[in-house]
Design a protein around this nucleic acid. Sequence first.
RNA 1: GCGCCUGUAGCUCAGCUGGAUAGAGCAACUGCCUUCUAAGCAGUGGGUCAGGAGUUCGAAUCUCUUCAGGCGCGCCA
Length: 577
Amino acid sequence: MIDEINKEIEKFLSSIVNNKKNINSIIKKCSTSISDDLKKGHITSNVCMVAASILKLNPKNLAEDLKTRLEKIDRFDNVEIAGPGFVNISLNREDFVSTIQFINKNKDSFGSSAIGKKNKVQIEFVSANPTGPLHVGHGRGAAYGDAIGRILESTGSIVEKEYYVNDAGRQIDILTASVILRLIKNDISNYFPANGYKGEYIDEIGKKLDKKVKIHDFKSLSIKTSEDPEEEIDNIIHELEKLNNNSWNLIKKFSLKEIVKSIEDDLKAFNVNFDKWFYESSLGKIGDDSSDIALSVNKLIKDGHAYEKDKAIWLNTDISGDDKHRVLVRDNGKATYFASDVAYHKNKIDRGFDKLINVWGADHHGYIKRIEASIENLGSNKNKLAVKLVQFANLFKDGKKVKMSTRSGEFFTLKNLIEDIGSDAARFYYLSKQADQHLDFDLDLAKSDSKENIFYYIQYAHARIVSLEEKALDKFSKINRNIKNISSGNYKECDNLIHEISKFPDIVNKSANTLQPHVIIYYLKDLSQLFHSFYNDNHVLSESEENMQSILECLIAVKQVISNGLNLLGITPMQKM
RNA sequence: GCGCCUGUAGCUCAGCUGGAUAGAGCAACUGCCUUCUAAGCAGUGGGUCAGGAGUUCGAAUCUCUUCAGGCGCGCCA
């Protein structure tokens, strides 16, 4: 329908403007869309105001001309000029109402589109270090990355979701040392380094360890304490590796596997599934010329973007406006984490994605420019990469902020959260605010049974419709669904609802274009509000059979839209409450 | 010091590719359950959109600036 109007607008513009360029810039700037409120007609356009400002003409005169053109089309009931020059169009009733049948015919696919043009999009998210369970901070990134994955997929992109496992760094050595030290703690008088991982999960891993792994050798560990805790733990790692290299490697491999598995399980419980788990270690070592990491660094050197200085290798990041050059290979010959990341991004680009989306914690924003520089320097376009920052979420319980400290091993894990309020409510609240802004996550609110709890407010609308359907079937045993009485105008109480559900595809597209799932939440809240209001004003089951046939057809469409919206957020609609 | 983000009703937030009277929920006050789920509905009050300047037919939205808050600025990961 809007396409048809747009065509008419184009015809109109070419009848008053000669300059093709002007026409295009007007079309690009103006918007013709479903009106926010029925008082403004079904469809509204600001094209006359935009055209007026570019052409230096009077917007109201333009609107008059456009109005006379549009009035000739009999699918429109009424065309009005409002405010400074808006053109508001009312469709004829049959067209307006037809959206109900359209929804009920398309069911789950209503709202989906092809605007993604089958572009291959890769979303990398969570990617928490595999050194312990996911905590509530990771949950937000998980909910966000997964939701935009679903939204992009439904709007026609081909999405691959990936978790980057940092298994190559020093953190994994610390993890391994922590497991061993806990296992032999009685033999070395309970010693434990300040920077080791202390959570219970460390003991759990130890308990599961295969009996064939010999920990006996480690008992002879001599501890060199140090002022610098980093140095101290490095010494311990070095000693342990020396005592029994074979067992060290086995324990390391096992610990990593256990943690990755537990992360995967937690994410599954959170309704988040990855297509690929990419291991940093698969990028190889800098000393191996055939490894991804060496190939990347060598290419950068060869192309003149990286250079040696003070025995280290630096990347020139000027191209992205980074404030200084960054080290790829340290003066001791070891590659930095950044070098791995450069290789990883090269790997992603080589896999042929049209778009890369990185979901990062907001504390990494200083890292964006150097990655962009590396992408440009590797001969690709930095616009292929979109980094979406996710701010930390503060957790509130009993009105108080929950303190979290990774160091002490005391933190609210994602698993705790899911057990406490459920995966659906957790996802909902994570997504209820723009991702790059601070979120206060109120656990009490998420469990409360008031209207303030929007999660239940929306679910309640869905459940109420399910219940109405059942009750109506009980009453009439069979319902011949049709929209005759709505279509004829005999029954108009649903009009607000019909108008609202017709907005849904636009909302999904907006959410996809801006990568903001929260617009769907706010939309669902508005739709639910209209439904609850309708529900209170109209006693559906006491309507005539003919009215009820139409009403149910409409409410089933409303239910479908709520369900589709929730599904895009990875949330299961409730059938009953 | 530099960079990024934020400042909208008492509170928590929408609205921000410029557009019609700036919206919701909570809190306060007032109504609505012998009928479909009251986890609901209807109503009242509440705003110099942090301050200032600019761009224009039009600014919460764009630009500059001041103030306030958050975060980041390693040969850590």
